Simulated assay, not measured.
Amino acid sequence: MAAATEGFTSRKLGEGGFGAVYEGRLRGEAVAVKRCVLPADVAAMAGAAGDADGLAVEVRALFEVQHANVVRLRAWSDDGEAKCLAYELCAGGDVATLLERSRASGEGGGEGDDVFSVRQRLCVALDAARGLLHVHTHHERGGSDGDGGAGGDTAKRVHRDVKPENLLVTGDGVTKVADFGLMRVVAAAGGGSVAYTYVPKGTFNYMPPEGMAGAVSQKFDVYSFGIVLLQLATGRRSFEAAAEAGGEGRVLVNDVELAVDAATAAGTDAPLHALLDPHCTWAAAAAADDDGGDDNSDDDDDGDGRRRGLQCDGRDVGVALLRLGRRCAHHLREERPTMREVVEELEAVGGRAGVHGGGAGPGGGMARVGGGRG
């Protein structure tokens, strides 16, 4: 791995609590190399709590759960001092960065000028949901997960760290679920569908209420994904401190819940429209020309033969993301939909909008990542 990254001196793509990610080349392929150095005291604490080795968990998950919307592992190493994972390089960056770039831009001035358009946001939602559905339904039979989970029955995987930073976008605009270091396998059938861990894990702002008590189920991921949907619709962070929110801290899911209730009571989507990200052009024109002009015009073409325009009002897409995100992020686990239901609903939204996911294939909609301004 050192050779692939020129001794870990190549371009740094990101950095976390216990390591960094570098751009490199491995056997002629561009890769992203994550190098983790876990302090001895932290490693000892994790072992005492019965937690599995994060690298072993991630390697196993990425080799077993292969899907177009799950990042691919190319190689791994453990030399005792540091642990390294080499993934396919996702040149489009992560969704958190796309949201930040959008926030730094001016207000939406037309879909072609948006840093992160309605179409791109819907592609991210569709791709990520499909990746998570595969993770949830690609069952493992027998054995232990190394983290206290029982084996012997069909077991279900839980990612446990779904957030914008862990959704990566390729240069072709395909979104992939990444970072399986906290993945947990939960026994089904005789073992039930909920497990408990001694130490709650995940990212605080994306953890469901029961997760704080150590409960783990696939509805954990559904909650986290719901917060991501709300961020895609509003452009906001999951929590904004008082300084950011104009004097009072704001929790995104609470604001959306109030707006959904207000919209339902008033019989209008106006309260939800008010929450949509102002840096994105939601009221984009439909793909079909309204003036009777030539439908084959290249004026709205994005460079690869597809039209940028949606086949419905973009605000309808935003409202759908808000309503679905709110249901996913319900405080009661049993009230949340399954990932299969989430995918089905997003595909219905995509069908109305003429968007079917990222990539350059038919119906794709995110061939250029972060285009336009910025």
Rank of each mutant, 00 (worst) to 15 (best):
A2T: 10
T9E: 02
R11E: 10
G19R: 10
V21M: 09
G24R: 03
R27H: 10
E29D: 05
A32S: 13
R35K: 15
V37S: 15
V37H: 14
M45Q: 13
A46N: 11
A49P: 05
D51P: 03
D51T: 08
L55K: 02
R60V: 03
H67P: 09
R74Y: 01
R74C: 11
R74G: 13
R74S: 12
S77H: 10
D78Q: 11
A82P: 08
K83G: 10
L85N: 06
E88Y: 07
L89V: 02
D94C: 13
L98C: 14
R103Y: 01
G106M: 01
G109I: 01
G110M: 09
S117K: 14
S117Y: 13
Q120E: 15
C123I: 10
C123T: 12
A125H: 03
A128C: 11
T137P: 00
D147L: 06
A150Q: 15
G151H: 11
T154M: 06
H159L: 04
H159T: 15
R160G: 09
D161W: 08
P164V: 06
N166V: 07
D172S: 14
G173Q: 08
V174L: 06
V177T: 12
V185G: 07
V186F: 01
A187I: 01
G192L: 08
Y196T: 15
Y196M: 15
P200S: 11
K201F: 00
T203N: 07
F204T: 14
F204A: 05
Y206C: 00
Y206A: 00
M212P: 00
G214W: 03
S217Q: 05
S217F: 03
Q218C: 08
Y223S: 12
L229Q: 03
Q231D: 04
L232E: 01
A233G: 09
T234I: 05
S238G: 09
G246A: 10
E257T: 15
D261L: 13
A262S: 01
A262P: 00
A266S: 14
T268K: 13
D269M: 11
A270T: 15
L275E: 06
D277I: 12
P278W: 14
A283M: 12
A284T: 00
A285G: 11
A286T: 15
A287M: 08
D290K: 12
G292Y: 15
G293N: 07
G293Y: 04
N296D: 10
D298H: 08
D298R: 14
D298I: 05
D300K: 03
G305D: 07
D316F: 09
V317G: 04
R326E: 08
A329V: 05
H331K: 14
L332N: 07
R333M: 12
E334G: 13
E335I: 01
P337W: 04
T338W: 00
E344I: 04
L346N: 02
E347Q: 12
V349H: 00
G350C: 12
G351F: 10
A353D: 07
V355N: 08
G363I: 15
A367H: 14
A367D: 07
R368I: 07
V369D: 07
G370F: 10
R373K: 12
